[in-house]
Amino acid sequence: MSLTETEAVFASIHETALNDLLTAFFTDRPRYLVYGSPSFVPVTTVAETSMPAIPFPGVPDGIQWRVTLGIPKVDLYKPTMPLPPELTLNPGQFSARLDVELCLNCRRLRIDPRPPRPGTAGRKDDRGGSDKPQPLARLTCCKLSVFAVGHLEHVIAITGEDAIALAVDAVEIVDIQPDELESVLECLLFMILQAVLAEVRLPLRALRVGAFELTPVVGPLIEDDQIKMRGNV
């Protein structure tokens, strides 16, 4: 069987090279793996992305948080990486495994003895004493192993080129009790992973190391542990 089949050009990238490409992206731009509120990440740098704290009434400066993702390891169909039973890698899909660390700045809050004034909920406390950031009471973190399955999306990179992005369809965290807590964390990480991976737009040019111009007609599609595309010159 020819590689090009009925088209003039063929290109494929094996999952090992795709993982190298993802490693290159996250190594050069690690801020796409680390997100935190100002107590953790005061400003956005190459290494970290600064995000607002979670505002909550009565919590000065909001709830401080940080999410640190590991570089995902991707397995393209056919499956070679074990998955938890809740997930199945179907034809045309990828699976991914990564470590995630969730951290909160857990503080003891002091109750202000003065009566609350209406309309101050959610605002910065202006009653004196509690407007200074509380000292870090305890950094509370947990590490999770996260599995995901998803599919490819044909997108446009920031350079205007044809590109692919990894779209997450489902996330699974193993062995968290109760199940409802597991579901909440899975939902949280489902949203985070979708957003993070949507930013990783890999130009098709890179998937074929710049060889032979290709206007996609078939694909990009996942099969035989590769991303394949066929098209015209």
Partner: peptide, 17 residues
Amino acid sequence: MSEIIAALDEKGANKLL
């Protein structure tokens, strides 16, 4: 197995050349 493969048929090679 090679990590990245790119191929042209004769029609594509003709255009490339």
